[in-house]
Design a protein around this nucleic acid. Structure first.
Lengths: 162, 162
DNA sequence: TATTGTTATACTCTATAACTATA
DNA sequence: TATAGTTATAGAGTATAACAATA
């Protein structure tokens, strides 16, 4: 039975597909969920380009900033902050500690307080400069007002978290 | 030397960390890049909840809609559309074909035209209803006007792409 | 020669479950 | 008992490189 519709489908295909190869995105274009997805892809690509030489990702950058802004926080708290399982945070801290950017200091004997090392602070200063350049490029087609509105609207999408 | 700063850091820690455990997100709060990341996480969670029983992800949904809207498109074209490598599309189509949702029809002898099967269309109708419910929940704190503005601003972030 | 699809492979990110040592 | 961190493990998602068949 599916074969029966083939001819009809091919007709529709040539009708729907522009000569220049532009595609139809159907209802996707109007979906916030989909536009977020696309924006995220664009952001990630530009981030990688801007931060080219530096071994960092948006996620790791967020972790470093949260540690910087909350020195001594515990791993579990950090996990909540960045929406990860605490087991996932272990390898992230392992990584950052191996690179000399953060350090675990035992708080009790079962929990760790996490701090940026001096090297980590220095690293973060450099990375922050690049991230801000990246951010600037992200919003280069927005006015200051639009930028403000965009951030506010994004925050409205998930009012319970922070 | 890092140990020298420990006491100072701990003092700062108690100062910075609210008693109720609220964290400081530093400059992250104002970054479009970071807010997009958070929004994306929220979207993905709600998507999974809404689509609970159904074996689908935002990415796969996008693929199905693009195929529906452009019946007969080639795999390479599809890859460009959803910003994936053509090798990645192979396993995606393998998956969807195994489930009887799409079919490869040879166009030449080296390229495939991709179509939704009848079952795929039926599946997509069901999924689309759920995705729209999900989308509705996403924007429930936005007015219609805000919604429109948000989509427009998101599109402005990557004017070259689609 | 260039393109299409494919395979083999490997890497990143993340979660789950089970464990240990503490509190 | 409950909690913090850890380990082992597995799965999803993706890319890169090399290849065969075809244009």
């Amino acid at each position: 039975m599916p074969a029966n519709n083939l001819a009809a489908r091919k007709r529709q295909a040539t009708k729907t597909n522009d000569a220049d190869g532009n595609l139809d995105y159907g209802l996707l274009t109007g979906l916030v969920g989909y536009q977020l997805r696309l924006a995220q892809i664009a952001v990630f690509r530009d981030f990688s380009e801007t931060l080219g030489g530096v071994d960092i990702t948006p996620g790791l950058f967020g972790v470093l900033v949260v540690i910087e802004s909350n020195p001594g926080l515990k791993q579990t708290r950090l996990a909540q902050a960045v929406h990860l399982d605490r087991s996932s945070v272990v390898s992230i801290i392992d990584n950052l500690e191996r690179r000399g950017l953060v350090e675990r200091q035992s708080a009790d004997r079962r929990s760790n307080a996490i701090f940026l090392t001096n090297q980590g602070m220095k690293f973060l200063r450099k990375v922050r400069r690049l991230v801000l350049a990246h951010e600037k490029r992200l919003i280069e087609h927005l006015t200051a007002k639009e930028h403000k509105i965009l951030v506010a609207l994004l925050q409205k999408i998930f009012p319970d978290r922070r």
